[in-house]
Nucleic acid binder design. Structure first.
Lengths: 206, 206, 206, 206
DNA sequence: AATGAATGAGCATTCATTCAT
DNA sequence: CATGAATGAATGCTCATTCAT
């Protein structure tokens, strides 16, 4: 097996186990068994247990960032309504989380009480996500789609908290039975937020 | 010191440490030192480390349940608008979390990867919260304040996810500097959700 | 067993094993078995394996320093000839090493290749010993018992190297069969060095 | 590169690393990197890590034996005074150690705590050295240059211990700054030992 | 011959829990 | 009742050696 494949394989197994049992309850021994790899090998590819976790987190962030980007879907920000923009972000996030249900659990529920460096890594992850949404909201405000007085930081937290909780509800945990219609959920979420988020007039202009 | 006081003191110290460092990074030794109690004593009051954590969690749930109850504030459900009802839940939750910032972190970020029983306890905690909000929404729908077709389970998740994330943003973590005006935050959150949540007509009727 | 006794017991066993097998070949498990102490206990008394070794070394240095001191034997430096002074140092060192044959091996043959801090500790040990002898020689030179031009640093090394090698020969290693007459060995060593070390005239004056 | 060259190169690098960091702190991986050789290759030339170390030690012994031999320097044992003979041994040893400062550290300070076979190899090394000096002394005694009653084994230990400690002082350790005048040091050492070692009369006869 | 990925026995250290005093 | 010394199972990590390519 090629080095890159092997590394990916270890990451895949580690992700699954971390998501199922968390950081502490997942032993290196478990990862070894799951990945069918020897003890020494894992330390060839990763400096230590933390390194595996952090790598997972950073990969995940970049994939998510990519998943919700506009350019990937040839969306022109000039010709999209704020509501459609929001729907795009929600839909892509949900699709992404549904495809990577393991990480969904990790990000949402493994944050506190990790050793040193790791806790920081999770914090940074959240900050990045919140930052992207904050920027979105700021752009919308500049374009007069959002009222001047809205607290954008708070709103970003509300949106992210709501969507990730929904994602966790559907895709996180061990319960993989629920497979929702993402289009419907997207509409539902968007429908809940749009009326309170955007100025009425802004919704008419496509 | 009386037994009950001693027990409360241990819980108080444990809560602080669990919130600051999580379940795993908090050692029994730390709690001993913080509570100024001997090793043997702690095992007189609690069966084991898990027991402390679970006790904390259950106390917390009951306090929260009490904090957001209507009766405690002499609110008559017959004479309150759905918007005011939502505002009440949000406001009381925020006040509650602001007064117990430690637990806020625990509930939101220590969930996954706890040994055996503990993980279940955290899950149950979330289920209970989601359940209460779900009932609220169901009541509102029965009273025709919410459209028939709304997915109440999803909506409950969105609301809880949003509010807890906001609470964590303001009160969680180590950052105790941010002390927001709870009334303003309540209005802001309510303002975001109300238009999408309730049928327009229902808002006019008190 | 009292804490101090227990600590002393662990040190005694560790010393024996370190001397027999060196730092690396002595496992914590070996010390546990030898001292009949559980794994956790040893870490109550010592921070880690290094700590045991360093404690041993520092105790040893202080004991040796005490053993060769003049005051302990009511020796008045004003009324002792340089030859008798040298004999005293040699005799006391030999007695000391013969009583602690374990440490003799440790100091002489475990120096290089110890992890970080430890190597420094051994170096410091040697520096201290060499320093004491250097001071002795300096005093002798000031009292005109040694020629002005002698290289005292080199001579200190020669003396220490010779005496420790002799001590290792008799007391070090596993060979505990050879039990020399210390008085004879002292005379022999002193007899070898005195003629080349001290100015002839100085030997006549008591 | 030819096999023999390659083997020599590995030994050279290993020697440097062993001397700097000792046996245990030197990993095979370090030697590989230093020698620019692959993992598999090193095991073509040497059975294992021990084998490298032992080879080094034996090479070293033979080189030293050669360095201090008389024949190599066309010295006729019949026409050399015991003092000059001693000076020759000391001078050649110092020159040798100064040219191979790495091994100097190894022999002097890596002895104890080596696994199995290795410790024996180091012991043998010391025995050989002590044996040669013992023979020298015996010869001197037979020629009436040394008093009948002298303990030759002890004296050999004293001489070897002194000279090697001096060599370590000047050439061992990391301190490569001190470059002493070997002729002066030789005289100093010889000057210290000769008066106590040889019968006065023997020194007059060349 | 040469390579370097894979192996796994071995080791120091941690920490919740117990129990003799 | 209170104490804190003692316990030992559990775990992350290292590194010499092997062997398929």
């Amino acid at each position: 097996m090629k080095p890159e494949e092997r590394k990916a394989q270890i990451l895949r197994c580690a992700r699954k186990l971390f998501a199922q049992h968390g950081y502490y309850q997942t032993q290196i021994a478990d990862i070894l068994k799951e990945a069918n790899v020897s003890r020494g090998t894992i330390y060839k590819y990763f400096a230590n247990k933390d390194d595996i976790f952090i790598t997972l987190l950073e990969n995940y962030y970049h994939q998510w960032e990519d998943a919700i980007s506009l350019t990937r879907y040839d969306i022109d920000i000039q010709h999209i309504s704020p509501a459609d923009f929001l729907r795009h972000r929600i839909r892509q996030s949900l699709i992404f989380f549904s495809e990577e249900p393991d990480m969904c659990s990790i990000v949402l529920r493994v944050g506190l009480g990790l050793p040193g460096e790791l806790e920081l890594a999770v914090s940074r992850f959240w900050d990045k996500i919140l930052n992207i949404i904050h920027k979105d909201l700021n752009l919308a405000r500049n374009n007069r789609h959002i009222v001047e007085t809205m607290d954008l930081t708070l709103t970003a937290n509300l949106l992210v908290g709501a969507v990730l909780q929904a994602a966790y509800h559907y895709f996180g945990g061990q319960n993989n039975s629920r497979k929702p219609d993402i289009e419907r959920v997207t509409d539902e979420i968007a429908g809940l937020f749009i009326p309170g988020l955007f100025i009425r007039e802004s919704l008419r202009v496509p």
